[in-house]
Amino acid sequence: MNGLQDFFSAFAREFIDKIKIGGRDISANIEELLDFSAVFTWDLGFVQIPVTKAMLNLFLTVLIIPFFCCFLSRRREVKAGKFQSVIETLLGLLNKLCENSGLDEEQTRKFAPFAGAVFMYILVSNLLSVFSLEAAAVNPAFPIALALFDIICVIVWGIYLSGFTGFLRSLIAPKAFMLPFNLLDYVIKPISLAFRLFGNIFGASILIAFLRAVIPLFLPQVLGLWFEVGDGIIQALVFTYLTINYVGEIVERGRKKSPAEKGKEAAEAAA
C-alpha cells in the first residue's frame, strides 16, 4: 500500500513538473530557436557550404512544391469537378488580384505564374513549421534574401511588361521632382517586405516556443493553429499581394498617356 502511494506521489510530482516547465529550462527552447549555426557542412570539393536549419526547410519546400502541383493538376477535365473548381476559383482570384492592380489581360497571363510561385514558396515554407520543422523565416537571412530577390524581379518584370521607357516614365510619375522619392522607394520596399515577414513569423515562433516550455499540454497546439497556420497563410498572401501591387504600379505609371488625357492636362496647366 505504501509503495503504491509513493508511486502516485512521485508520478504527480513528475506530472506537475512537466506541466509547469515542460521538464526543461524555459530559455533552452528559445535558445534552440535562435541557433542559426550550421547543422552540417556540405562538402563539394572546391567549396564547402554550411547548411543551416532554414536551408534544410527550403530544400524540402522546393522538393514538395512540384509534387503538390502535380497532385493539384491531376485528372484535369473540361467539365470541372468539385476539387478542380476549388483550384480554378483560387487561380481566378489570383488573376483578378493582378488585374485589379493595373495589369491588363495579356500582362496578367504572363505575370500571374510568378506571383503564384512566390506565394507557394512562402506558404509551404511557413506551413512546414506545423511538423515542428521551424519555418525558414525564423532565420533573418531568408526573408532579407527573398525580399532583395523579389524587388529585383519586380524591376525586371516592370521593364519586361512596360518597356524600358515605360519604366523610366514610372520613375518620374506623377511629376519629375518625385524622382528621388521614387528611387528611395526601391530601397524601402525590400526592407519593409523583409521585416514584415521576419517579424511576424519569428514573433509567432518565439511565442509558441515559450508556451511549449511553460504549458506544453494544450495551449501551444491551439494557439499554433492560429499563429503558425493562419499567420503563415496571411503573410504569404500579403507578400504576394504587395509584389503584384509593385509591378502593377510600375505598369500603371509607365503607360503612355492617351492624347485626350494629355490635352486635358495641358488645359489644366494653362488654367
Binding site: 485589379n100 521585416f195 514584415r196 517579424g199 519569428f202 514573433g203 518565439i206 500579403v238
Partner: peptide, 23 residues
Amino acid sequence: QGLLLVAIVFIEACAIYALVVSL
C-alpha cells in the same frame, strides 16, 4: 474591403518593426 486589408497590413508593419527592435 481590399483597401482596408492593405491599410491594416501597413499599420501592422509599424508594430512589427517595434517587435523586431524589442527582440
